[in-house]
């Protein structure tokens, strides 16, 4: 299996950024996820070919990290932080609200494939607790009501690109610090939007 020309070119560029091609496994796994919407077996096979590893080794790496979703994932992955700082300020309630609104339990993906909901460990937003991420785009200072409204809005508007600034503006509250100017980019799936050099997502 190979990817389309553009993706293959990006893959080659990624491999070129490292002294040894094995190092490209992680960004290539993101690329594979961006390609299929989740990390498929074929995606892992392609990454193995590109890095000279066995399929089992690639699976070994992929399964170590929580962000490589091997079992399919919804269009919007809502990760609610319930680590210590967010827990102290009501993160559990936000999680309950999100689960109730979407009808998707913690750790699950809805049948329509729209939402996946998960509790996350600390996402580095403790100053703006409780916080959550949608496709790894951060929203700080989220109340249970905000969480519900956010999910409703996503379901109704189905944005193709999830922009953190936009969601923060609509549903966020206190921030850990001033984020600076609004950014245009955002995530196009459950893959972190980082990739001017082709890592994953579009970014900006």
């Amino acid at each position: 299996m190979t990817w389309d020309r553009r993706t293959e070119d990006r893959a080659a560029a990624i491999v070129g950024r490292y002294p040894e091609k094995r190092s490209a496994v992680m960004p290539l796994l993101y690329l594979a996820m961006a390609e299929d919407g989740y990390l498929s077996e074929d995606g892992m096979r392609r990454v193995a070919q590109l890095t000279g590893l066995s399929n089992a080794q690639v699976q070994g790496v992929a399964s170590f990290y929580t962000m490589y979703k091997r079992d399919g994932v919804g269009e919007y992955l809502v990760s609610v932080c319930t680590s210590i700082s967010c827990m102290l300020l009501g993160g559990d309630d936000v999680l309950d609200a999100v689960a109730a609104e979407t009808g998707v339990a913690d750790g699950e993906t809805g049948e329509d494939g729209l939402f996946s909901v998960e509790h996350g460990e600390c996402i580095g937003a403790c100053g703006g607790a409780p916080a959550l991420q949608v496709n790894y785009e951060l929203i700080e200072g989220v109340t249970p009501d905000h969480g519900r409204a956010l999910c409703r809005w996503l379901a109704e508007n189905r944005p193709a690109v999830v922009r953190g600034d936009d969601l923060q503006e609509r549903f966020g509250g206190r921030r850990s610090f001033d984020w600076g100017p609004v950014e245009a980019g955002g995530a196009t799936g459950a893959v972190p939007a980082f990739g001017p050099l082709g890592t994953a997502g579009e970014g900006s």
């Binding site: 094995r22 190092s23 992680m26 890095t51 070994g60 790496v61 990290y65 929580t66 890592t199 994953a200």
Partner: peptide
């Protein structure tokens, strides 16, 4: 280089393994 969700990769030698494309 972007990590992928593993606190242990903050430990410097795990980080190096991760950067080498290994389990962290």
């Amino acid at each position: 280089h972007l990590g992928a969700g593993a606190y242990i990769c903050g430990e410097e030698t795990a980080l190096l393994n991760s950067l080498e494309g290994r389990r962290g």
